[in-house]
Structures are given as C-alpha cells and as structure tokens.
Write a protein that binds this DNA or RNA. Sequence first.
DNA 1: AATGAATGAGCTTTCATTCAT
DNA 2: CATGAATGAAAGCTCATTCAT
Lengths: 195, 195, 195, 195
Amino acid sequence: MDMQREGKFQRILDAAIEAFAESGFHQCQVNKIARLAGVADGTIYLYFKSKEDILIRVFQERMGEFIAGVSRELSQCKTTKARLRTIVRTHFTYMEQNRSIAIVTQLELRQSEPRVRLPINLTVLDYFNLIEGVIQQGIECGEVPKIDTRIARQMIFGSLDEATTDWVMARSPRTLSSGIEPMLALFEGALRLRE
Amino acid sequence: MDMQREGKFQRILDAAIEAFAESGFHQCQVNKIARLAGVADGTIYLYFKSKEDILIRVFQERMGEFIAGVSRELSQCKTTKARLRTIVRTHFTYMEQNRSIAIVTQLELRQSEPRVRLPINLTVLDYFNLIEGVIQQGIECGEVPKIDTRIARQMIFGSLDEATTDWVMARSPRTLSSGIEPMLALFEGALRLRE
Amino acid sequence: MDMQREGKFQRILDAAIEAFAESGFHQCQVNKIARLAGVADGTIYLYFKSKEDILIRVFQERMGEFIAGVSRELSQCKTTKARLRTIVRTHFTYMEQNRSIAIVTQLELRQSEPRVRLPINLTVLDYFNLIEGVIQQGIECGEVPKIDTRIARQMIFGSLDEATTDWVMARSPRTLSSGIEPMLALFEGALRLRE
Amino acid sequence: MDMQREGKFQRILDAAIEAFAESGFHQCQVNKIARLAGVADGTIYLYFKSKEDILIRVFQERMGEFIAGVSRELSQCKTTKARLRTIVRTHFTYMEQNRSIAIVTQLELRQSEPRVRLPINLTVLDYFNLIEGVIQQGIECGEVPKIDTRIARQMIFGSLDEATTDWVMARSPRTLSSGIEPMLALFEGALRLRE
DNA sequence: AATGAATGAGCTTTCATTCAT
DNA sequence: CATGAATGAAAGCTCATTCAT
C-alpha cells in the first residue's frame, strides 16, 4: 500500500515537472498537473500542501538525488582534478539528460517569494558544501593554494549555473556536455591546480 | 514639457524598483507603485504598457546605464587585467550601492515568462558582448591563450552573478566589494593571464 | 447486533452535537464528527444520509425526547398554572443541563435551507401543539379567558426561546433557571389566569 | 459624486436583500447580487469588505432605520400602553411591508459565525434597550409593578420575533398585523398594566 | 495629460460524499 | 458492516487594466 502511495507521489511530481517546464509555474494550473498525473485535482492535496509546495518538493526530491549522486561519485575520486571533473561532468550531464528538470531548476525555481526560496536555498546549501569541501580538500592536500573557498565556490557554481541557463534558453542545438573540458580548464586555472 | 514627461517616467521607475524589491513582482500591486510615485493608477498606463513592461524597462534603463558605464570605463583601460578589474569592481560596486536594483535584478527579473525574459535577455546580451569583447581582445593581444570566449564569459558573468545573488540573499553583513580582489585573482588564473 | 447499531448511531449523534456546538454547522467537517465518534468518515454515511441529515436527526432525537418528557410531566399536572410551570421549568432546566444541545438548537439549527427547516419545523410543531393544548385546556376549564391560542403559544414559545438564546450567547454567568418564576408570573398575567 | 456612491451602495444593499431572501445567504452567489444591482462583481468589493459584510450591513442599515423609526414614534407616546402598542404595531407593520427584509432578518441573519453574530447583536441591543426603556418607564410611572425588565424584554421581543418567524414561514395568507391587538392584550396582562 | 471608479476574468483549495477493498 | 483514499464540483475575491470625465 505504501508503494502505491509513493508511486502516486512520484507520478504527481513528474507531472508537475513537465507542466512547470511547459507552461511556467504561475501559468500552470493545478488542474493541468492533475490531468497529466491521471488523478483528481483534490488528490494532489493529499500529497502536497499547496501548489508552491509541489515546486519546493520537486527541487528537494530531484536535486536531492542529484546531489547524493555527485557526493557518491566524489568519494571515489583520488585527486582534486578528478573531483572537479566529476562535478562539472555530472552537473552538465544530469541537466542535459533531464531537460524539463533543468528548465524548472534554472527558470521556475528562481522564485522570489521567501516561502519558496528558503526551503530551496536550504537544499542548494548541500551542493554548496559539497563544492566548498572539494576546494578545502584541495587546499589541505596542497593541490590548491590558500584561497577563499566561498568565493571559489561562487565561481564554480555560478559558472555551471550560468552555462546551464544559457543552454536552457538557447535555441541553438549546441550540447551542454561539450562545455565540460573547456570549463574544467578554466576552473583548474582559477584554482591554480598543481598535479 | 518633455522633461516633465521624463521626470514622471523616472519617478514611476524608481517607485517600481522600491516596490518590487520590497514586495516582489507578483506580490506588488500596480496601485502600490502608483502611490509611491505619487500618481494615479491610470497614469502608469500612459507611460508603460503593462506591469510586466515596467519590469522590463527597469532592467533596460538601469542596466543600460550600468552597461554604458562599464563600457565607458573599459575604453580607458590599457590591459586585459585592468579591464577585468574594471568589470568586477564596477559590477560589485554598482550592486552594492543600489541594493533595491540588485534585488530586482537577482530575484524579480528571473521570470520565466518569455514575454519578460526575451527583452531582458536582449539587454543582457550587450553585457555579454562587452565581456566577450574583453576576452577576445586579450586573446588578440596575446595576453590570454586561445580559449572559448563564450564559456569564459559564462564563467565570468556566472561568477559575478552568483556572488551578487549570495550577497542579496545573505543576512550576513559581509560586503560585496570585499570580494573584488579574490574574484579577480580567480579570473586571472582561469584566463591564464600573462602580463 | 441492533443494539450495536443503535449504539454507534447515538455515538455519532453525540459527537455531532459537540462538534456543531464547538465549531458551528458550516465550519464543522464531517471528518471531525467521525474522529470524535471514533469511526471512519464513510461509516457516518451508513447511518445518516448527509451532513444536513445529522443536524435534522439531532433535533428530532433530542427534542423528541425533550418533548416526550414535557408531555409525560404535563399529564401529571392538575391545573393550568402547574402545567405552565412544568413547561417553563422543564424548558429552562433541560437547556441549562444540556448546553451543547442548547447551542445547536438556538444557533446552528436556525438554518434557512428548506431541506433543513422543514423537518425541523415538523418536530417543533409537536411542541407547539403541546403548548397550545395547555392553553386550550385552560380555556375549556375556565381558568383562561377565550384568547387566540396560536398567538398565546407564539408568546410562550417565543419568550422561552428568546430567554434561552440570550443565555446561550451571554457571557454572563446568570443561570437560566433563575428566570423560571419571573417568566411564569408574566405568562400568568398574560393569560389572565384564574386559580 | 458622493450621492452616486451612496446610490450604488443602496442599490447593492437592496439587491442583496432580494438575493438573500430568494436563495438564502449561503446558496446566493456574489455574482447574483452583482447582476441584480447592475454592477460588476468586483464593484461590490469597493463598497463591502466581504459577502458576510453585506449581510451585516443589511441588518445595520435596515434595522437601524427601523429602530430609529420606533424610537421616534415612542417619543410621541404618553402612556405605557401607547408605547407598547407602538412597538407591536411598528414591528408587525414594518415586517409585513418589507417581506424580503423580514425573511433575511428572521432566517438568514441567524448565522452562528461569531464574525456575523457579534455586529448584529450589537445592533439588536439598541432595540433591546428601547424595549427595556419602555418597561422601566412604566415601572417608574407606577403603571407597571416592579418586575425584572430583562425578562420582560425577553418576553416582548421573543413574542414579536416568534410571531414574525411564524408569518415568514407560514404559507398561510394570514396577516401579521391582525395579531397586533391580541398580542398587545397579552403584553398588558403580562405587565399587569394599570391605566 | 491625469484621474480613479469600475470592470470581470481567472484560479487554488476545500470538503461532503463515494466506493473499491 | 467498516474503512479511508480518492473524487471533483464549486465560488469568493483580487487586481491589472480601461475609459468616461
């Protein structure tokens, strides 16, 4: 029974991602999500507190998975260079393979309402910590000179984020993953990585 | 008479920036902007097509000024290093001194509706071209090795943008301008700048 | 088995009285009644046609008992004076001892929807007949002069009803039963009761 | 301009009385009131805070007028008997001539929600004070023996109220005003009125 | 040009009721 | 009999925009 519940939760989540990506959060009616998920309007409110709650949960669930994935792969890396490559590659690859999630992440989730921003920021923080951890580790190993990890993280995340937004909005068919190596080279230079 | 018109236009624009920064674009009622600007609701529609149009014009006007300013200062710079410093310094300083504009820029303008995004992107493009121009110039002068200017621009703009968002959302009183030098160092490394 | 059925019926009825008295008919959710009664939401619909039906049955059951009680006591009375006293005393005492029922009776049952009013009015009619019977009897015995029994009943019931509403809504701790004798004196005067 | 405003306010009020009397408060949609008043839905909210507010204002405005009328007529009366007659006559006549208001007053306004009850009770209090004033005056003049004015008021108001409810709900064409003299006789007896 | 009263489209959410188990 | 997850109809109110003055 609990698997049925979980299944319906995921179905609504997936429907919401498609709907948000297609129409935008504000445009999209709850009724559309319900239709896509194959449930009644009211059913959504058995699983989510509100329309905003769906948006928040989309991020928490999907980015949670993504961050867990990055974290897992990072633990297998021996060098800072490998770790940076993992971050760039996983970030770009994930977004490229989940375009709807990317659209929601890059556009719809940039909501200014504190009710939405706060829980989202909390989740992003995990990703920030991951990135800052890699830099910190690099410094401790002597692979990276002493630098401000917060600012380095802003550079890394900001760059990845901006590249993704560019890709999401561009009509050009250039792939996101083609940017992995050039971006990585920039990061290595910025961090003055010693091998 | 035209100056009166211009004056009222600017008053509404400034009122809108305050109102959007305070309440958020969707929360903020046109009526509030009118009150802040000291005009009637209907008057706003003599100067702007719609509420969305106000948001777009805020960006076009203020960022237009900002970009023109950066452009002007860039023309005085002799080296790529100086140009990068100008970009970072002007970006951080401007945002720090215009917090309401920063809030609107970093949060409220991230609207997914194409009607809003498109004209905004068009303006941002000028800034992108400016940044890419600096990189291109660096490559031509031999100060920067041959790299993908688009990706380098994504890194530079993304980093500045992310740092600004961090500052806007953070409750910490850390200044944005304290990040100028560290950020600049990262950029120089990334671009492998030769002096 | 039938006693089990009866027991559950009564449990739901009692739960509904508490719930209606506490939250008001429209505010109160069926789900709350179910919780108070310790049954599932759906179970209620095995015993009642609808939420409105519960309200109607509350009145029919509880006021039915009340009216039967008054009727029983009246049959023991020898004089019109005794009968009037019985009515006033029983009315005030019953309401005072069943505050939740009084709240539902005086406030929640004043529903304008004909679906609710009609069956309720039908039950109240029994009480009206009881009161008019006492007056008629008084006239026939010569204790009361010839008067319009309908209007006399409106006076008696209206007075008792208004006093009860006053008590239900008043925050003052004045008891309802303290009004028995004064009210009775008014009725005796109104009916020009001869002993 | 202010008369136009007042005119529209009254038009909405009258429309609401008709609509509430016809469909009941909960059944009646705001949209119906708007249509009857010949204004747009939104216009109603320029004059009233909410649907509930309309109900409250109906009572305050119309009963306010009624109470003021009774008060005016009472000041012309010389004896307690004349004052009682004025109350009964005005009450019955007013209701009879304003059936829709009577329906709203006797049925729709018996709302249990405190938000509605409280302001209504406050207005009714004026009427209660008027009635209690008449009794008190009677006692002071020696026309009425010392009795509890509150209970006497409960009797008088309760009787009038119940007679009105009876009339509103009865399909019988019996007039309310035909009850004036019999009801008055009961009141005189109840108060043991000396002339 | 300026006003601001009037418009009316638009949508999330609740909750009484049902019915498959 | 009992359950409780699922249903889906239903409506008050807001607020961007208009337009008569």
